[in-house]
């Protein structure tokens, strides 16, 4: 018990990166292929980034229809922890585990860059107890523009928002046109979280432009 599954779909690219970062964060984890996933063996699950099924049709749409995601849904309903990163976030949204939609970036380009994120909610398993209010980590996606028809609702669900280094969330720091600069949302209960930024890429000092490892602060939420 206490283990975290990192699910690999056909086309997933970040499973090993996430696995390594989880180890760094002190989280007991293993990579599981989508057809071999047994939810009873795990307390938590991470859907890592990548291009499941080539992201054909819509990012995450085909993976959202798999048996593995149906099982993830059951876990979520049981109150187990579910984290979707990038493509994983897209899958969670497509599968209806999280509200809203992730649309093509406003400039229609794939965008890869390091961004600052303001922490808006600390009542999710990922952000609970976190001391920092502004985090630094990279994004890399083509379909990350968060949309929700109900802005008030979106405000309630948002966990992270694109900002400057002081946590100010102006449009200048919105890399993809997301509603309210939203980079991450959770469900009401806070046990299902999706985020476009990649915490696993901000978990090693050597690889960070300013030596910070803010990704670990979030990933430790899977061990708490």
């Amino acid at each position: 018990m206490g283990r975290t599954a990192v699910i690999k779909f056909p086309g997933t690219t970040c499973e090993v990166d996430v696995y390594r970062a989880l180890l760094e964060a002190g989280v007991e984890a293993e990579v599981v292929k989508y057809r071999d996933f047994d939810p009873d063996k795990y307390d938590a699950v991470v859907l890592p980034g990548g291009f499941s099924y080539g992201d054909y049709l819509r990012a995450g749409a085909i993976a959202a229809n798999t048996e593995a995601v149906r099982l993830v849904k059951e876990m979520a309903n049981e109150g187990k922890r579910v984290l979707g990163i990038c493509n994983g976030f897209q899958i969670l949204v497509e599968a209806g585990l999280l509200e809203g939609a992730l649309l093509p970036n406003l400039n229609l380009r794939f965008v890869s860059k390091w961004v600052y994120l303001r922490v808006l909610r600390k009542d999710t398993f990922l952000t609970e107890g976190i001391e920092k209010d502004v985090l630094y980590m990279p994004i890399a996606h083509a379909e990350g523009r968060y949309y929700h028809p109900d802005e008030e609702r979106a405000k309630r669900l948002a966990v992270l928002a694109y900002s400057n280094d002081r946590g100010e969330t102006s449009q200048d720091h919105n890399p993809n046109g997301s509603l309210l600069n939203i980079a991450s949302v959770a469900n009401e209960e806070g046990n299902v979280v999706g985020m476009m930024p990649h915490p696993e890429r901000a978990s090693f000092k050597l690889l960070s432009p300013n030596s910070s490892t803010d990704g670990l602060l979030l990933l430790r939420g899977l061990a708490r």
Partner: peptide, 19 residues
């Protein structure tokens, strides 16, 4: 150009493109 590439995947990129 390089912002259209996922240059961080693999978590081994020490110096980024353009750096």
């Amino acid at each position: 150009a390089y912002s259209q590439f996922d240059y961080e995947v693999g978590t081994s990129t020490v110096l980024k493109p353009g750096e």
